[in-house]
Design a binder for these strands. Structure first.
Lengths: 149, 149
DNA sequence: GCTGTTGGTTCGTACCGCGAAGCACTATCC
DNA sequence: GGATAGTGCTTCGCGGTACGAACCAACAGC
């Protein structure tokens, strides 16, 4: 039941590092980290509020505000679902898609830099292990890598 | 310059997973994640506001409120620095120390569960790689593992 | 002493996240 | 086809988070 000594701390601190990097990058792009998560989640395609709530792990009431602010920011747009008058689809605007692309690139670049000192083999190993951890736990795809695994 | 395909996404999603687990645990203990970070950072010993600002990566103005709320919550206490009347030391109260201990244990347990499906060897490897990543980047010790590395 | 610096706080602003309650529409059942 | 239950989303009120600018008190150097 006990994990390897130091592993938990390394995971927490590593997460802290990634989080900080992510937040700094978002700020540099003029968006909030949460808005960054939102637009990245929408990169593969539009989603309904319910799906977004699921993917982002937020209460729906929290999502309303986030989407509204991001919409006011011009990155995202709501549209009525043709099949269900109640439902709302959220999609990236063209500028939103551009910002998402830039942001995604910037985040990738900055995070790549964090593991730059590791050898190729080590990076591969790290990727495999993390990927395996993700496979064993339900983690929505909030950030994808276009390049196939 | 390009990291292994999928590594960046795995890091981001893994971070997302750890973050969620951490936040859920904090909530279950009746504290906010930020207060959890604060009390964990204070477990090794008292710190000044400036040091805390450094460790937690927060603006000093942000810290004032966090410490005040946590103090109002009875987990932490401010005291004057004997050598510098301006300076303030922040330390855990006895209940704060107890809560920190419980929280730390709960977080460790929950995060251990996330890697439960990995073999011992894989966990070790993951720990080593993450530890190496941390070594190459300045990451304050916001969460320690008493057991020595 | 005067002056520049440093440690913290206050203030105003924007954002985040939740649950409870509400509203409008859909689906179901008779 | 009309009452009833359920669903999708928003509104509201609340507490917490985070920042920069401005401020104040105390230290430090000359």
């Amino acid at each position: 039941m006990e994990a390897s000594a130091g592993l938990v701390a390394a995971l927490v601190r590593g997460s802290f590092l990634i989080e900080r990097t992510y937040a700094e990058t978002a700020r540099a792009q003029g968006i909030t980290p949460q808005q960054g998560v939102l637009i990245c989640a929408l990169m593969p395609g539009a989603l309904g509020m319910g799906e977004l709530s699921e993917v982002l792990g937020l209460a729906k009431s929290s999502l309303t505000g986030l989407v509204s602010r991001t919409e006011a920011n011009g990155l995202v747009i709501r549209s009525a679902d043709p099949d269900d008058t109640r439902a709302v689809n959220v999609a990236l605007t063209s500028t939103g898609a551009a910002v998402a692309e830039e942001f995604h690139t910037a985040v990738s670049s900055r995070i790549s830099a964090l593991v730059q000192e590791l050898s190729i083999a080590e990076r591969d190993a790290l990727g495999v292990l993390l990927h395996r951890m993700l496979g064993h736990n339900a983690v929505p795809v909030v950030f994808t890598d276009q390049r196939r695994w």
